[in-house]
Amino acid sequence: MLSPAMAATVSGVPRVVDGDTLVVENTRVRLFGIDAPESKQTCQRASGGAWSCGAAATAALRALAAQEVRCSGDEEDRYGRLIAVCRAGGRDLNAAMVARGAAFAYRKYSMAYVRQEAEAKSARRGVWQGNAERPDLMRAQTRAGTPPPQSGCAIKGNISGRGHLYHVPGMRSYEATRINTRKGERWFCSEAQAKAAGWRRAGG
């Protein structure tokens, strides 16, 4: 939920909080139009294996913002952070994060960086080198009392009217599937584990 704020511009050498949040001159800034993986989030490589995409996103922003930045915006989020576009050395840092595959275009709020996301996806950079769950979906699962999967265990075991089905990263239905452990749904680390527990592969 965004709320109007007085147009503001802050500048200085920032402290990086995570892949889409900075502190500039005591002002917390949320980068506009992008959503980086959560700090402890892991992603899957196409070749197999998990990697710390959340930590990598934080490191990418730290490298880009290792100089004076200028952030301008006119809205605040519900946490009181200034929603802003930040620039350093003439470069739009928001765009650079998405272009590197270190963040997603946050379509819920803006289509400004969709082109950069498409380019990163085509080049299989960063989060696009395999499968990554969008951070907003992970946050929604956390709010629902469903913790994110442990490293390497990203297969979703869902219970529906069609029975016990598991969804593998990359399937069409994967991102839309929510896991509620209170209902007996669960995460699996491999298809063999899911099948052994009585789940069957979803259709796509």
Score class of each variant (00 low, 15 high):
R162E: 12
Y106T: 06
G126S: 09
N158D: 14
L64K: 04
A99R: 13
P147W: 05
G161R: 14
K156N: 06
L61V: 02
G161D: 08
T42Y: 15
E117V: 03
A84F: 02
V69W: 02
Q141A: 15
G48Y: 13
G90M: 09
A55M: 12
R70H: 10
D92I: 01
A66E: 10
G152M: 08
A96K: 05
D136T: 11
L93P: 00
G170M: 07
A112R: 09
G80C: 10
R134P: 07
G130L: 12
A46I: 03
A36C: 06
Y113W: 09
P147A: 14
E117P: 02
A50R: 11
E38Y: 02
R45D: 11
G157F: 10
V114I: 15
A57C: 01
R124Q: 13
R115C: 06
Y106C: 10
R143A: 15
Q129D: 11
Y109I: 04
L137T: 06
A56Y: 00
M171Q: 15
E175T: 05
G33N: 11
D77Q: 03
S52K: 15
M171H: 04
I83D: 04
Y166M: 07
K156L: 10
Q67W: 01
F104K: 01
Q141F: 06
C71K: 04
E117F: 02
S160G: 13
H167T: 00
T58I: 02
G80M: 12
H164C: 09
G80K: 07
E75P: 00
P147L: 13
I34T: 01
G145H: 04
A55I: 08
P148D: 07
W128H: 11
S72M: 05
R125H: 00
C153I: 10
S110G: 09
Q141L: 12
F104D: 02
A59Q: 13
H167P: 00
R100P: 00
G73I: 00
G161W: 11
E175S: 12
R115H: 09
A46Q: 12
Y113H: 07
D35F: 01
A140E: 15
L31E: 05
P148G: 11
Y113I: 05
C43F: 09
L64W: 02
T58W: 02
G90W: 10
A105H: 05
A154H: 15
A95P: 03
R172W: 11
A66K: 14
P169M: 05
S110C: 11
G130W: 06
P135N: 08
P148T: 09
R91P: 01
A144Y: 10
A96D: 11
R172P: 00
A132T: 14
H164N: 13
A102G: 01
L82A: 05
R143C: 08
Q150E: 14
G49H: 12
R134H: 13
Q67I: 04
Q150A: 13
A60F: 01
